[in-house]
Design a protein around this nucleic acid. Sequence first.
DNA 1: GACAATCAGATTGTCGACAATCTAACAAGA
DNA 2: TCTTGTTAGATTGTCGACAATCTGATTGTC
Lengths: 234, 234
Amino acid sequence: MAKLDFSPIADTTRRAEIVALLRRAILTGQLEPGQKLNELRISEQMRVSRAPLREAMRELVQEGILTSIPYAGTFVIDVTAKDIIDAYSLNKVLDEFAIELAWPLRDQRFFDELDRRHETVKAATRALDTTRQIETALQLHGLIYEWADNSVLLETWQRLTSRLQMYFALHQRARNEPVPAEDVHETYVALLKGSDMRAAQRHAREHIDLDFEELLAYARGLEKRASTGADRPR
Amino acid sequence: MAKLDFSPIADTTRRAEIVALLRRAILTGQLEPGQKLNELRISEQMRVSRAPLREAMRELVQEGILTSIPYAGTFVIDVTAKDIIDAYSLNKVLDEFAIELAWPLRDQRFFDELDRRHETVKAATRALDTTRQIETALQLHGLIYEWADNSVLLETWQRLTSRLQMYFALHQRARNEPVPAEDVHETYVALLKGSDMRAAQRHAREHIDLDFEELLAYARGLEKRASTGADRPR
DNA sequence: GACAATCAGATTGTCGACAATCTAACAAGA
DNA sequence: TCTTGTTAGATTGTCGACAATCTGATTGTC
């Protein structure tokens, strides 16, 4: 019999689609931090009942990008400078660990996939598609996690990534400028192909610090004009 | 005005109570790995409708202790040896990080709380209350995370802890023996009070490895008699 | 005018019923 | 005997309606 691995059938519940829709809206910044999600309005817009919508929202609450207050509502999480610092400092630690685990497991397929994802980022950059650039850059970054062969680590990183993507999207949205055309991932990719693990770990840490400064400045801006929004939870 | 910090009002939704009930049942091993959760039956037992039950189950799925297959059902996660290895190795990394962050923030309140939790563990140990012993030991362990002042790290650890608690409970349940009466946390507490951070980090790592061997043996046992259970997802 | 009590509107939480899907047993045909 | 088609039962997914709760405005009282 011919050996063929089929990928799992897509989830076809409304709930799953709603989760995807909402997550996308939040991570791209279409839904702003602190904003309230009105169940009735959203369910009418999506043409679904509140039941699957509410279940979807429960998932996103646990995923950490929504927050819920009983009988008051469900809100997009607020972004504080501290949150960004916290997420980034943890990300550094996880990165070092992931590189350590993935390092001995690198093979041709790893390198090929690395190049493929790198190309995807470059394509998005050339197309000036900011949202997609953020998304693909994180996917490139995620390869070491997928290769690390530690399901708990991967899961943890994916949760963290949700927030990072949101932060970056907000940042990009705020400054409203075209994306830098230069390739910031060249060195990272090269180091992952090389033989010096410590160097790769070091670069991952420093490279992160690069974008970080910009992001922090943005977050501090947010802090200042906080608590002026229309509908935020108290 | 007298300064007084009130603790938040308890969540009074059915959903929240159901989450607590189910989580407890899973983490204490009353619900076994792989077991299917029949919505109708559980909702009747709890005297609630399926709506809040289903929302609660969604939360636990995202929390990582349930898994769901559309139109097939929701199941308690299976425990494999690999899962335990993965969780533990990540836990080591996080522990080192948490100690590093918490170290300069230690104060009298920290030491007091450390002692208090240590006492709680000893009380549970004396009472031969296995479940509570596991629970309190993890709470003792969690203090450094609470003190690290990194919300993302804390959240990550809490998710990880859910599984660790489940693994330990299953292990204890399986061997069906009284709890060791000796105090295995004495050194850990002493080191956290000391001045040698590296030593504390080293001990955290080694102490973990101690229980780990036992737990792994149990997990390997599980592996062998896997796929013989009655109602497991495929 | 300041403050407490009351009330209407809006929103979230929960319920019971129906629709969609899966599973397993059975029947029919090669 | 093996495979395929059918069907009944059970279970999950979704819906619309009702109950509980919150918010903000209004009223009444001092």
